[in-house]
Design a protein around this nucleic acid. Structure first.
Lengths: 343, 343
DNA sequence: ACGCGGGAGGTAAGCGTTTCCTGACGCCGG
DNA sequence: CCGGCGTCAGGAAACGCTTACCTCCCGCGT
């Protein structure tokens, strides 16, 4: 037992530990926070015991200022309640945990100004890396963002973009290839007419999927009747599909939603219009979020390894050695009941 | 134009700004980072211009060490890909953004040891508050956790628990009341027999919902045939329901899943067993996650304002003035197609 | 004209760590 | 027995920021 430890209002510091162990700050630091230097076993034990006793945990902020580098990775997503981003974030978090890093998360709500503001706020933490998962458009609003990102990069931070042409390192999947395969396979199933519910023009993910699907579908003899624009949300899918249905949609038409979330909205709109998903109006999506397994009919889609993608993004953000994947991750088409064979 | 600014490998510091503006550190600090003291307009402008020019953003780590208090709130969830936690996290993030705080997130994967480790890691950031949303059990593993939480609280951090009897401030909903209402309403719909698929004994949320549902259902003349134990996941629901179905389940039985995620698993199991959800086996859940809207039949459930809950949790974590809600948030029963009237 | 008070900028002492550098000590070879 | 060298603990200077305190100056009252 040592002196009475006042139930302090602030956490134990390294100083406290050193005093308790009867060693210098330097020694305590070396023992507790990975230094390459050797410390005599007896000292080491004393320090460890003291730390344990006091419940000491290094103050990461102080560590960051002293070391000039933080143990933080920032993640920017459009909407964490969206399963797409949820699964992605899962992978990021797993990788961060393995690497002993902490993830801070911010939500853009798909608002460019907000995104700029958030990047600026996150920049304050001097994170090692910043993962941009909020599929953003390069509209006029992006100028402020670019400045923030440039400042971040200038400060030595690593930017990672999901998708092939964002700033920083890129982690991407083969949207074009996956969509092409999907289109071809659905045409082979007997679909002749398709409508695409896409997001805005200029959003690379959307554009690639539209292009791929179009190529695959028409290449196999199908016809794209229309590409309508919504967004990446369930409600966008619902509303867009609803408008489509009101204008009239022939039975047997296939509606391709740019993502599963959109496709799920489409399915609901179809049903609310009194039509049957599958038998009457076929629906396909993209991503294979886990919900797709549980809705009926099951949603035909393209499987994207979202968690894996998040994991890769994390590594792209923090590894010093990094090479872009030689080719984007290949994707797999999954046919379920929402697109029954049509013969 | 001033001297040549080397494209530095590290971000601009307050020092740089002060030099650029030709003022002292103190003045620059006062201008840029909220101080009560007045600074002459001319100085203010100079500093602001310099900051703008250099793309300066305060180093939050340094700020935290200097001020002795961080702008961070930590959030611990079981699984961020689970829509329940996703919606919750949404509310937390929104509140944090409003309050100018940053959220760091960690994922327990429902593993008590991991949770302990994560709390320790998060503690390193000296967050203002720690929101415990990972519904944890108070098993033997919790002793390490309790020590970490105590240490966190001793350091002046505010702990917030979701649910009525965790450590720190509590933010909770009226699980008992909601479940009672649900049970009563379903009994009134004509259901006479129910099976409950719950999580482990000792998990308060599960216990409360079981107790409430039982009270409501039996109170209105129904009979609880069995309470089986799984977990809070979709797969737990699926597997448990599957076992139940293999043992035989009379048509007209109601299966109450402890959460929507579980109920969705149950629905899939029912269908995979060749039975019909609703007409044959009725299913009800709890939470009203957004997926419930899009599956067919719609899932009967109790609406929990998850995002709002997250928002409240954030405020419980950071507000100095705080009083527990006089009574837990009331909940609303939502009857959908998964429990058709049975007459 | 002088003294005094108050307003506002600067100086410097922290905050909790890391890390460079000094210096004590022990061991070896000559 | 002494010098040299290697080892390892400790002192102290950073890191980027905040803030208590000091100082200076201006304007006012008498």
């Amino acid at each position: 037992m040592s002196e009475i430890t006042a139930p302090s209002r602030s956490a134990a510091t390294l100083h406290d530990v050193a005093r308790e162990a009867g060693v210098s700050l330097a020694t305590a630091s070396r023992v507790l926070n990975g230094s390459t230097r050797k410390v005599a076993e007896s000292y080491r034990e004393r320090v460890e015991a003291a730390a344990e006793k006091l419940g000491y945990t290094a103050n990461l902020s102080a560590q960051a200022t002293a070391r000039g580098t933080s143990a933080i990775v920032a993640l920017l997503v459009a909407d964490i309640a969206d399963p797409y981003f949820g699964q992605l974030a899962s992978g990021v978090a797993r990788g961060a945990d393995e690497a002993g890093l902490v993830v801070t998360i911010a939500i853009t709500e798909r608002d460019a100004q907000r995104e700029t503001r958030l990047v600026r706020a996150l920049r304050g933490q001097r994170p090692r890396g910043l993962i941009l998962a909020a599929s953003r458009t390069d509209g006029p609003d992006s100028v402020g963002l670019d400045a923030e990102l440039a400042a971040f990069a200038a400060g030595g931070g690593q930017i990672v973009s999901l998708g092939p042409d964002g700033p920083g390192r890129a982690v991407s999947v083969d949207n074009v290839g996956g969509a092409t395969a999907l289109g071809a396979q659905l045409a082979a199933l007997g679909y002749a007419r398709a409508v695409i519910v896409a997001a805005g023009i200029g959003i690379r993910t959307s554009d690639d999927r539209v292009a791929g699907f179009t190529a695959g579908f028409t290449g196999a003899g199908g016809e794209i009747q229309e590409v309508v624009r919504g967004g990446f949300t369930r409600d966008a899918g619902y509303d867009t599909a609803r408008a489509l249905l009101e204008r009239g949609l022939e039975p047997g038409t296939l509606v391709f939603g740019i993502s599963d979330v959109v496709a799920i909205g489409i399915m609901s709109a179809v049903r609310d219009a009194g039509r049957r998903v599958g038998a009457d109006i076929a629906v396909a999506g993209f991503d294979d979020i886990s919900t797709g397994r549980d809705i009926r009919p099951g949603l035909t889609t393209v499987r994207v390894p979202l968690e894996d993608l998040g994991y890769r993004a994390l590594h792209a953000a923090v590894d010093t050695e990094w090479a872009p994947d030689p080719q984007p991750l290949p994707l797999e088409v999954i046919v379920r009941g929402s697109t029954p064979p049509r013969t």
